[in-house]
Lab assay of single mutants.
Amino acid sequence: GSLMYASIFGNVSAIIQRLYSGTARYHTQMLRVREFIRFHQIPNPLRQRLEEYFQHAWSYTNGIDMNAVLKGFPECLQADICLHLNRSLLQHCKPFRGATKGCLRALAMKFKTTHAPPGDTLVHAGDLLTALYFISRGSIEILRGDVVVAILGKNDIFGEPLNLYARPGKSNGDVRALTYCDLHKIHRDDLLEVLDMYPEFSDHFWSSLEITFNLRDTNMIPGSPGSTELEGGFSRQRKRKLSFRRRTDKDTEQPGEVSALGPGRAGAGPSSRGRPGGPWGESPSSGPSSPESSEDEGPGRSSSPLRLVPFSSPRPPGEPPGGEPLMEDCEKSSDTCNPLSGAFSGVSNIFSFWGDSRGRQYQELPRCPAPTPSLLNIPLSSPGRRPRGDVESRLDALQRQLNRLETRLSADMATVLQLLQRQMTLVPPAYSAVTTPGPGPTSTSPLLPVSPLPTLTLDSLSQVSQFMACEELPPGAPELPQEGPTRRLSLPGQLGALTSQPLHRHGSDPGS
């Protein structure tokens, strides 16, 4: 009898404990919600809404976190579960008819179910419309201010047509639940991603989709105040780019002037030289400038040598048109050559190039014969006009050509200096018209024969001689050997007369 009593008592207590286990969990969670309300000092109306929603959600799901349970299964099984949970929507909604099984599984994985109690606001006026909503159960109302403009029910759709707008718009009203509602919502990016994977279904979906109420604000059109608020930074940046392009296009129409201050000032006329910023005076940081632009901040801005204009002085008759350009485009679109090309026009420029290279940067340069637009006047290309890779490749080509020119210049200078040193070592320090008596009659020769300089066969020296023939050397430049009979510069000019005159010897006659 005691054994029977113990078994009955144990079973009854276990049954009672299981009955009250759900209630215990409910009270535990309710205590957490109330502690949250007390800690954050939530006001009474919002506090009442929180408690009511918790009670309804507990009775609806029995305190089970559906998302946590669903995430515990593998992905393939999750797709089947989501397809079952959203079967009513996918079967009865017209846009989803005719979709393949794979497309429906992908869509079912992207849908999220939302449960809303009465009085809950789903979308506020001015919120971004980031999702498309399908009503599965219940009814909602749409308000503009305090005026109800629409009441939607089961199988209705609200949001915005995503295929017509590249960016999400703003809501033009509040969406509030009238009863307990079940909503299926899919985010904008998720829907577009699935439709991109199934393009054959995309056309059918957009053609058959009928949005019951379009929440997009109709005033959000390009150029409206609301649109400016939504895309303020983007609009200002776009206007700045367009104004920069218009100014650079105007600059290219004036090829007669070359400016070292950047493309923003290349198009300024002579009357605007004294102004601080020219056409860019209202925004000094709008356009890029070269490193020399920092010198323009000092006094005497109108007389600054940074602004270059072609000189009108005539060229000498024998002067060549100019050196070879550094870039391939210089032959086609440049009416002034790079300062480095002028360094190779003569030997005198070679000796004085490194010492006063900055001073020569603004000297007169030889002109190319074609009066085409200036290379320095070409505006900086924006990322939309020329690819970045093209600019980098041009810079690399320019750097390689500069290296080759520097190597060639160093070799030419070394060769010229070597020839000058050899000339100085071969010439005796001094010569006299009267020579010392020699031991015999073989001493009648006034000077030792001097062998002429070897013929220069280097390509670089031939180019130097060509430049010497075309360029007029300055007075202080050293002379180079030329073709024809060679003669030492330090010898007297009348050596031929010395050989014809008898030598005057000093000596005593033994017979006297």
Rank of each mutant, 00 (worst) to 15 (best):
L498R: 12
G138C: 03
M220Q: 11
D190A: 03
D196P: 02
G173M: 06
S285R: 09
L398W: 13
F205P: 01
L129M: 03
L340H: 12
D127V: 01
V434Y: 09
I211S: 02
L132M: 07
L152C: 03
I135Q: 01
S500Q: 08
P325K: 03
D396V: 10
L461Q: 12
K250L: 11
D190Y: 01
H204I: 08
R265N: 12
L491M: 06
F244L: 10
Q482W: 12
D182V: 11
I140T: 01
L380T: 09
E200P: 03
P475E: 05
D396H: 04
Q237D: 10
P383L: 12
G281D: 11
N163I: 03
P369I: 09
V347G: 09
D412T: 01
D182N: 04
P291H: 13
T442C: 12
R505L: 13
V416P: 04
L419Q: 08
E210S: 07
S139I: 07
L326F: 09
L491S: 09
L183F: 11
L215R: 02
K239W: 06
S235M: 12
N403S: 13
F234W: 10
L178I: 08
R247T: 11
E479L: 15
P373E: 08
P310G: 05
G233E: 11
D127H: 01
P314I: 13
V416A: 07
K332G: 09
L215T: 02
N219T: 10
G126F: 01
Q494K: 14
H187P: 06
L498P: 11
T179V: 04
P325F: 13
T407Q: 08
P288T: 06
R176G: 02
V391A: 15
P371I: 09
L340E: 04
G281Y: 05
F353K: 13
L132N: 03
S227L: 12
P439K: 09
L152A: 03
S432N: 14
R188H: 08
D203A: 15
K170M: 08
L242V: 10
T212A: 10
E471F: 06
P299Q: 04
Q482E: 15
S272P: 09
R247K: 11
T179H: 03
I378T: 13
P449A: 09
L448S: 08
C470V: 10
T218A: 12
S259I: 08
S460F: 04
C368Y: 10
L183V: 12
S235E: 10
L480G: 11
P478D: 11
S290L: 15
P305C: 13
C470L: 05
S259C: 10
S333G: 12
I211M: 07
V347M: 13
S289F: 13
P284H: 11
I221L: 11
R137P: 03
S410A: 09
T179M: 03
S382G: 09
S443M: 10
G493A: 07
T218S: 10
P373M: 10
I378F: 10
A131P: 02
V347E: 11
D509Y: 08
P339N: 12
V391S: 03
T442H: 13
R240L: 09
G281H: 15
H506V: 09
H504A: 12
A430G: 09
P481V: 09
D174A: 07
V258I: 08
F244P: 12
